[in-house]
Design a protein around this nucleic acid. Structure first.
Length: 596
RNA sequence: GGGCACGUAGCUCAGUCCGGAUAGAGCGUCGGACUUCUAAUCCGACGGUCGUGGGUUCGAAUCCCAUCGUGCCCGCCA
């Protein structure tokens, strides 16, 4: 509704200014502060005061006079407040909001028939997923979800770096060392078992005798060369390591949840010849130079050259990534990549090179986030420093379970069985971890601290999830009472699952009811903006706003014991809130518990 | 040295891209509210030179310049 109202306000202002013979390039539309009744306002009078030769409040009055509110279904009144022109919503605005929100798909925007690929995580398959990396799947998955809600046709890709030196080291180490030389794995999972070879191999290369290191290096080099030459046996050796570790990592990522439609391997673009083809085209570019026996690009606006072919004739990660991106452009209308801030320069160079190759780089958007560090520094798979994501999630679930159980004791509730407790512990524990990360601007630095990451108070997931549980509680109670009364009186045809299908929004006149409807009305616009800006965290901000507004309604407006007409309308409002909270949390990838 | 990000209440953050109505939350502190549709809730109080200094503007947390602090990057690694 908000989107339509905004369109009406634009229309109203534009035509009014045109009739007054004033410029319409900046309508000054904004959302007024909370204590103003209007849903939208315009500050255009400030700008036009000079031109008109009158003080802003007078200009505002002229503009307001020129608008006929009756011509716009969702505008009831156009009023000035000092220099501002305020647009107040009509009854139809509230009625249609109530109606729209009771749809389970509320917040999903019409299909755009545009294919988007969201690439995220893409962590090297070298070991367990640690918390330092966890921001990528959480933000990436939320970006994919918000685009999905906004009507895009979304695919999620994990780009698998299976051709780099680290993977060659890993493959060598896996084949060279015996399990009896390794420490016990930290968990009974493939990536925890495998990472021991990786760490052992790296340690060996740093500490062993020079001759032994040299012989290891030649084996590693042979693996790299085998991949470059398209040797089938080498691919298989590497794939065994990569696939095993990746499977384990994905089990962890699924817990968030973060799932992928496709795992795109880097070697794919070596095997299908597209990297060779790309190298040929790069050499033809005007800025291509051959220096120090290597082919490089002298990119404008970049200080350093970008090497795309080594002196030994092998390709680099960036070269393959160029082929990878051209492949994305062929198959999708848009490509979004979620990357750590340390990849910023590389991403800019990639973009510049793609542009020179004749691609439309407007199709490519990159979302950057800063690393999660420990108070004592960064996390590293190779060195084994860091908090495993599995441990964080387990701890979160344990703490959530304690919370649920202590509440059970306090309230002597008997409506939850063991399965319920376990389900709630998972939803709340994982939701809290995820919400904590997705609700912040990705560019802000985060230092990991257990107590802060697992704080269930504060502005966290449980606060919002609780609103969903409350809504479900009211609705299920309404159903119970409806089924009790059905024995004596016939079921009302206008009632579905205890919720009236055609409620009368006009009876919702309490300020708390109106405020809630206003917030509900904004949800589709929030989704649209979050998708346009690739900023899912703004949806998290919205969920807090919605939860707070619902809690005020909950305090002031009894639902089940109200008179029948009010009860019906309020039930619809609760149902609408439930869908909105559930969908907003779904955009963030956070579960919405039916009870807590 | 160069580039990019970040700096808002004691702490953690919205708001900044696209300038507008007394800068909003939560935590913590202090004080209140459960015979009521779930108190993981709500209400109140205290708390801010929006890093600093200039500039643009009728108007700046928001735009520009400078400066300080922190992080990241500047490899024939990925």
């Amino acid at each position: 509704m908000f989107l339509q109202l905004r369109a009406e306000v634009e229309d109203a202002l534009e035509s009014a200014l045109t009739r007054l013979d004033l410029p319409t390039d900046d309508l000054g539309i904004e959302e007024p502060p909370a204590d103003v009744d209007a849903v939208l306002a315009s500050s255009v009078a400030f700008r036009l005061a000079g031109e008109v030769g009158a003080p802003p409040p007078e200009v505002a009055a002229q503009v307001a006079d020129e608008i006929d509110a009756a011509a716009f279904p969702y505008v009831s009144t156009v009023a000035t407040q000092g220099p501002y022109v305020n647009f107040l919503p009509s009854d139809a605005y509230f009625a249609d909001t109530l109606d729209a929100a009771t749809d389970g798909d509320y917040g999903r925007l019409p299909a755009r028939h545009e294919r988007v690929v969201v690439e995220h995580t893409s962590a090297n398959p070298t070991g367990p997923v640690h918390v330092g990396r966890a921001r990528n799947p959480i933000i990436g998955d939320a970006v994919a979800r918000v685009l999905d809600y906004a009507g895009y046709d979304v695919d999620r890709h994990y780009y698998v770096n299976d051709a780099g030196r680290q993977i060659a080291v890993f493959t060598w180490a896996y084949e060279a060392f015996d399990e009896s030389d390794l420490p016990e794995p930290e968990r009974d999972a493939p990536e925890y078992e495998m990472v021991r070879y990786y760490r052992k191999g790296n340690q060996f290369l740093e500490e062993a005798d020079p001759e032994r290191v040299e012989s290891a290096e030649s084996e590693i080099q042979a693996i790299l060369q085998g991949l470059e030459d398209g040797d089938e046996e080498t691919y298989e050796r590497v794939a065994e390591v990569v696939d095993t570790v990746l499977d384990g990592m994905c089990d962890t990522l699924e817990r968030l949840p973060a799932e992928f439609d496709e795992f795109v391997k880097e070697t794919r673009f070596m095997r299908d010849g597209s990297t060779d083809d790309l190298v040929g085209r790069l050499k033809e570019l005007d800025c291509a130079v051959y220096e120090d026996d290597a082919w490089q690009l002298d990119l404008p606006d970049f200080e350093k050259h970008l090497v795309f072919l080594r002196s030994d004739g092998t390709s680099l990660y960036t070269t393959r990534d160029l082929a990878h991106h051209e492949w994305k452009f062929e198959n999708y209308d848009r490509a979004v990549t979620v990357l750590g801030e340390d990849h910023k320069l590389q991403a800019d160079q990639l973009s510049a090179a793609l542009d020179l190759l004749g691609n439309d780089t407007d199709q490519l958007s990159q979302v950057f986030y800063s690393w999660v560090n420990l108070p004592e520094g960064g996390m590293s798979t190779r060195e084994g420093t860091g908090i495993d994501l599995d441990d964080l999630l387990d701890e979160a679930i344990d703490r959530a379970r304690e919370e649920v159980e202590s509440r059970l004791d306090d309230r002597t509730r008997n409506d939850l069985d063991e399965d319920d407790v376990e389900r709630i512990a998972h939803q709340v524990g994982i939701g809290a971890v995820r919400y904590d990360i997705v609700s912040k601007q990705p560019t802000k630095g985060i230092t990991f601290e257990w107590d802060r990451a697992l704080d269930f108070e504060a502005q966290s997931a449980p606060y919002v999830q609780y609103v969903h549980a409350r809504c479900c509680g009211i609705l299920s109670e309404a159903r119970n009472r409806a089924s009790d009364s059905r024995a004596v009186e016939p079921r009302d045809d206008d009632v579905e699952d205890g919720v009236p299908t055609a409620p009368d929004a006009d009876v919702l006149q309490e300020p708390e009811e109106r405020d809630l409807l206003r917030v509900l009305a904004r949800f589709p616009a929030v989704v649209e903006t979050a998708a346009d800006d690739l900023q899912p965290h703004s949806v998290a901000t919205y969920t807090r706003d919605l939860a707070e507004t619902f809690n005020a309604f909950y305090r002031e407006c009894p639902v089940l014991d109200a008179d029948p007409e009010t009860r019906a309308a309020r039930l619809a409002l609760v149902a609408g809130t439930r869908h909105t909270v559930a969908n907003a949390l779904d955009v963030l990838g956070v579960a919405a518990p039916d009870s807590m």
